[in-house]
């Protein structure tokens, strides 16, 4: 029934998927489109990416990550398995908790990566905060590697998130 307990569980699952698409969609845009395209863009046109598109994409990327974590934790709590999943199903003898737990931990690591590594380093690399040329170059490389790490983790993370009905 509308607005009963199972509806709210569904509602937060919907919000979780919406914000997850916002987050991982931008992550894949950075890794599959923007980073590989930068060397092909003439220098005088690069500011269109670094000053306009990248800062806007980073805004929706990092807030998408935050919203995905918040709605995901609420969803796990409403579903009654937050503790079991965070323990990776140890002591429960249930593969569902192990699978969703792996997904949750990878998602949490990825979100921490976004807010504590990628975003601060991108601010330096894009010149949104003060940094020397050397610092900018180094920050850009660290941000790229952290972003690539998240792209790598997104593959098993999404398997874990969507496979629980199979287990």
């Amino acid at each position: 029934m509308l607005f009963d307990y199972s509806w709210w569980t569904f509602f937060f699952r919907w919000l979780h998927v919406l914000s997850g698409v916002m987050w991982i969609g931008h992550l894949w845009y950075f890794n599959f489109v923007q980073i590989p395209s930068m060397p092909k863009i003439p220098d005088e046109q690069k500011p269109a990416i670094t000053k306009v598109i990248a800062p806007a994409a980073l805004f929706w990327f990092r807030h998408g990550a935050l919203a995905t974590v918040i709605t995901g934790l609420i969803l796990a709590y409403l579903s009654g398995y937050s503790g079991n999943a965070l323990k990776l199903g140890f002591g429960d003898d249930n593969r569902k908790f192990t699978a969703i737990g792996f997904g949750m931990w990878m998602g949490l690591i990825m979100a921490a990566n976004v807010w504590f590594i990628i975003w601060p380093k991108q601010q330096q690399a894009l010149g949104l905060v003060e940094a020397t040329a050397d610092e900018k170059k180094r920050a850009g490389r660290i941000a790229m590697l952290a972003s690539r790490t998240n792209t790598m983790l997104s593959i098993p993370m999404l398997y874990a998130m969507t496979s629980t009905h199979f287990y």
């Binding site: 890794n31 192990t98 590697l145 690539r148 792209t151 983790l153 997104s154 593959i155 098993p156 398997y159």
Partner: peptide, 30 residues
Amino acid sequence: MKNPLESLGKTVSLGILLTVVMVVLIHVIH
């Protein structure tokens, strides 16, 4: 030495490999 994550193809391959490792781990744990 160049980090394998600098290549997008290697990143995706590592992600698929990590998925296989995770699936095995899920079955090993239970």
